[in-house]
Design a protein around this nucleic acid. Sequence first.
DNA 1: CGAATTTGACCTGCGC
DNA 2: GCGCAGGTCAAATTCG
Length: 475
Amino acid sequence: MEKRREMTHLHPGKFIHLNSGVSNRIIEYPVDQKHSIKEMDFFSGNHRQVEVSRTNNQSEDQENKDGSTRTESGVNTGLHLLTQNSGSDRLITQEIPNTQLTALQADLERVNDENRKLRSMLDQITRNYSALQTQLLMGMQEQRCKNRQEQDERNGSPTLSAQQFMDPGPSSALDHVNEPWHSDDEIQELSTSPTNKSKDRNHDMVDQIGRKRVSHVEDGPDQTSESWRAQKSTKLAVEEKGTEEQVPGFPGRKARVSVRARSDAPMISDGCQWRKYGQKMAKGNPCPRAYYRCTMAIGCPVRKQVQRCAEDKSILITTYEGNHNHTLPQAATAMANTTSAAATMLLSGSTTSKEALTNSGFLPPLYYASTMATLSASAPFPTITLDLTQTPNPMQFQRAPPPSIPFPAPMHGCPQLIGQPMFTPPKLPVMPAVQSGQQHPSIVETLTAAITTDPTFTAALAAAISSILGAPRRN
DNA sequence: CGAATTTGACCTGCGC
DNA sequence: GCGCAGGTCAAATTCG
Ligand SMILES: [Zn+2]
């Protein structure tokens, strides 16, 4: 106790200092601490560099901040105003004659309007791009599935298809672009052929929960919140369906997505709200594992585990499990999308033949998927691991064959990405200096490098913008 | 004082 | 059946 209390009062600066020092022991337990201060935000504090990507996925509230960058991106208004319009209007007002003022204001309005249009068009484009990419992937996967199934029918040995694999757990966002969250169940029912064992297990769980929990629920009316009860009932309902989270071919197992990231902070900020519900010492690891569940929505079944890597304690391993039953913050969907894309690629490549992707011109993503993500079906749970711990070497991204960022452009794409791990692009009321001080530069740099050094992305962005500018204006 | 966290107890699955 | 490990619960504690 005492220790923990002290820890929470450590100045972030000290924290960092200690971490970077000889002893990493200090950071063994920060998982406990309030995430509001200690979360590592992948993007905050790095706004300028990531700006380009943000123009893709940020909404209205970003207007002022982004104004300057957007101008650099090609929207040259010829007005010096725009680049400094944030919060400085009043000053300008005082110094500039009225006639000019009105003109400038008109210009400003026009520019803002233009910005808005551009943004919406860009959104549209990225959305379309995402949808197309999704469709392509899906098409390819379906084809592979069919081929596989045909083969299997001949061979008589059923195998796990990527599609099936992805659906059950963190249901691939890409799979449900146009579907509401509840589609997960449908998909799972479609894709799952629950074995007797899993059915029995679920049934057992229902029984147990029924037996064990009912008393609590009934005689504990003042329980923390309704959400918990709702959660329990949700769980019951979900369990009764008997297909939740299960992976065909892995009866009784849930698919998971694991993200390895270098971070001194005890938890990465991923756009969701989490409540800690447990902590355990894991075997073979001096660092405790913390268990969180999503509290963004009542009854959201998503859970995550946070643990430091035993070998390298600066590496934070976050494992997500389950499907969100709510919309993610739009910002968070960006990375969710890309993550799931990587996962999908990976799965396509690992459970089906890689030629499909390669021949379809999807080599680059596959390349990244296979270098940055791995799939482990041998673990108790089939787990997709995305490794973001690579050293931030921009060249790394340029060396790759037809370079493509590991987290491709469709930042804004899917309206809902369920159950995917996601990272928060810059939070708006950014947590004070604490965060930027705490976050490990390498991750930010890695991601930033990935984004900013990627010719595909920048070119696409540039093309998009220029085409928008060149296009006749519509209202 | 309500909400969030902590932490020991409890449950389950698995290997022996 | 027993012990172990992973996971979850919930009363107690702490925080804001
Ligand atoms: Zn959620």
